[in-house]
Design a binder for these strands. Structure first.
Lengths: 119, 119
DNA sequence: GGTTGATACCTTTTAGTTTGAGGTATGTCA
DNA sequence: TGACATACCTCAAACTAAAAGGTATCAACC
């Protein structure tokens, strides 16, 4: 309808973080990643192909991912995997994520200035 | 080169969430909010005035905030407070935040082991 | 008296990101 | 044959925070 959210709350940078994480465990191809994120978050996070594919290309051009092309039963697959540099980036990105989650949590739970009142 | 991040990772929508939260506890003015967020997060989050002021105006125009002008020792202050509608929005926004944090966490902590079953 | 810095408000421009819609092509199943 | 899932890809639109600039008052300092 009228509200078309092209850049929804709280999701900025999350696709990149998840891609680096998933591909550090095992290699996957784009379409698979889209499905995997959907499933493993119980449909809470759903990033479309229009989000994932450009990101894979960007991360690969930054040498954070390695890729390899295969043909499986007639269909082309491009298989990606997090590189060594990608794992470094993943580590700092994870830490950044946790720092921010903690900081937001401290405001939400009202741990401002020694005022441990009710929430 | 000094890369200029205009929309940094993980922060999308966070300023709005924090503003609604802070102003649901007590009324504050813009400049105060900027300082408060900086302090209460230990400098982890620092949103400039160019981010906060436009947001205050937007939230007020959406009736999520009430405002009141005062003059304190010659300086004008616009004091804001979260409205009833704003508290509703705050509640859903908080829940959304927690859902996303949990979802991302489930991927980040998702061990290398087998597949989790349906809930 | 003049300069600096902190307070307090505001706007404009810019860059980056997800979305959604669109496109191509193959294999499988009814 | 048609429909559908798979699997890849691209592009414009919409939204948001950052940065930098602007106005004005007051307190402190030399």
């Amino acid at each position: 309808m009228t509200r078309k959210r092209t850049n929804p709350d709280f999701l900025n940078g999350v696709p990149e973080l998840l891609i680096l994480q998933l591909l550090s465990r095992r290699s996957m191809y784009g379409y698979e990643i889209v499905q995997e994120i959907k499933q493993s978050t119980g449909q809470v996070l759903e990033f479309g192909e229009g989000c994932i594919y450009p990101l894979l290309h960007k991360l690969e051009s930054q040498k954070l991912l390695n890729s390899e092309s295969r043909v499986v039963s007639g269909r082309k697959r491009v298989i990606y995997r997090t590189s060594a540099a990608g794992k470094k980036r993943l580590a700092t990105s994870q830490e950044n994520w946790r720092r921010i989650v903690a900081a937001v949590g401290s405001v939400l739970e009202g741990a401002t200035h020694g005022r441990p009142e009710l929430a």
